[in-house]
């Protein structure tokens, strides 16, 4: 099988997810070539053909133009599968490509079982196998699902690509996450509050438990979006990545984007009323309980240890 891997580049850097695409191609035993809107000064370590468009000319985010560049390469290469990361770049560009190719697009692929892509359903409580009815397919891969290619080596044969397509959207620059505040990456214990805490006043309860364990408190995204906690306490793909000795998830369901930020924790405890919550998949201990009852009792017992 012939695949075309769509690598990513941001703010002058090649993204690490590029090597997940390479690992994927290796895993399914496919031939590959690669497409990148990036720069010659930071080429991937890759042993194959790289179709390279210049990001200083075509921008780092410029959907209509990147689409045309990629379609031209697809017309030349005729891959059976076009592979994206399921990322802010990938989920934006992949549907544009699948529509133009009239190909099935299967998103958020977490594994291949006997050649059939599998994707999560309902917050990862269920999985589904997806059958494409088209010969050519587009897939976007869940971050981390296929690992990194072992020891990326080689230098690509670079083929330049150009287009004179007009942009539809103007990119005006990046805005960094606000810095400062707590550095969760240094905390040995993190107690994290999810939407299950129910109301902002209950943050205090989570903070008290964190203190009794000598750690920091953190939060899932809805808690931050509701402004019950600061953004610099958010754990997950759009927050921080943490790897403490102990992570206590209180009222957190365990969505993929949250797990991505904490699954490297050494020991995970989850407190959740739902026995089937996906957080159970990464938890060493799942306490099926109402956190509003359990957390204060636990804190009290820890304080008198």
């Amino acid at each position: 099988m012939k695949t075309l891997l769509v690598a990513e580049y941001r703010d002058g850097k090649l993204l690490g997810s590029t090597y997940e695409l390479v690992a994927f191609a290796q895993k399914i035993g496919a031939e590959s070539s690669m497409f990148l809107v990036g720069s010659e000064t930071v080429l991937p370590q890759y042993d194959g053909t790289l179709y390279l468009a210049d990001s200083s000319k075509y921008g780092e985010f410029n959907p209509a133009v990147h689409k045309q560049l990629l379609l031209d390469v697809i017309a030349r290469e005729q891959p059976e599968m076009v592979v994206f990361s399921h990322s802010s770049y990938g989920w934006d560009l992949a549907p544009r490509i699948s529509l133009a190719l009239n190909a099935a697009h299967i998103s958020e692929v977490v594994e291949f079982v006997d050649g059939v892509p599998v994707a999560p359903v309902c917050n990862a409580k269920l999985r589904r196998e997806v059958k494409a009815n088209t010969v050519q397919t587009v897939v976007s891969l869940q971050a981390g699902a296929f690992g990194l290619s072992s020891d990326p080596v080689g230098s690509p044969r670079v083929e330049r690509v150009e287009t004179d397509t007009a942009p539809q959207i103007e990119f005006e620059g990046y805005e960094e996450a606000e810095a400062g505040g707590v550095d969760l990456s240094k905390a040995e214990v993190i107690v994290s509050a999810g939407r299950g805490i129910g109301k902002p006043e209950n943050i205090a309860m989570i903070e008290a438990l964190a203190k009794s364990l000598g750690g920091e408190y953190a939060a899932s995204r809805p808690v931050v979006d509701s402004e019950w906690a600061e953004h610099n306490r958010q754990v997950g793909t759009t927050g921080q990545t943490v790897s403490p000795k102990l992570y206590v998830a209180c009222g957190i369901s365990g969505a993929i984007q949250h797990l991505a930020g904490m699954k490297k924790s050494e020991f995970v405890v989850a407190i959740n009323t739902d026995k089937d919550a996906p957080i159970g998949e990464v938890a060493d201990v799942l306490l099926v309980a109402d956190l509003k009852q359990l957390v204060p009792v636990l804190t009290e017992k820890l304080q008198i240890l």
């Binding site: 699948s98 009239n102 190909a103 099935a104 697009h105 299967i106 059939v116 359903v121 990862a124 409580k125 269920l126 999985r127 589904r128 196998e129 997806v130 059958k131 494409a132 009815n133 088209t134 995970v268 026995k275 159970g280 998949e281 990464v282 938890a283 060493d284 201990v285 799942l286 306490l287 099926v288 309980a289 109402d290 009852q293 359990l294 009792v297 636990l298 017992k301």
Partner: peptide, 27 residues
């Protein structure tokens, strides 16, 4: 262009401990 051919519950891996009961005992 595509269809779900099968839906299922993921295997519970890791074999984490699941504990239920009274809050004080759980603590």
């Amino acid at each position: 262009k595509q269809e779900t051919s099968k839906i299922y519950f993921p295997e519970k891996k890791g074999g984490g401990l699941v504990l239920e009961g009274d809050a004080s005992d759980l603590a």
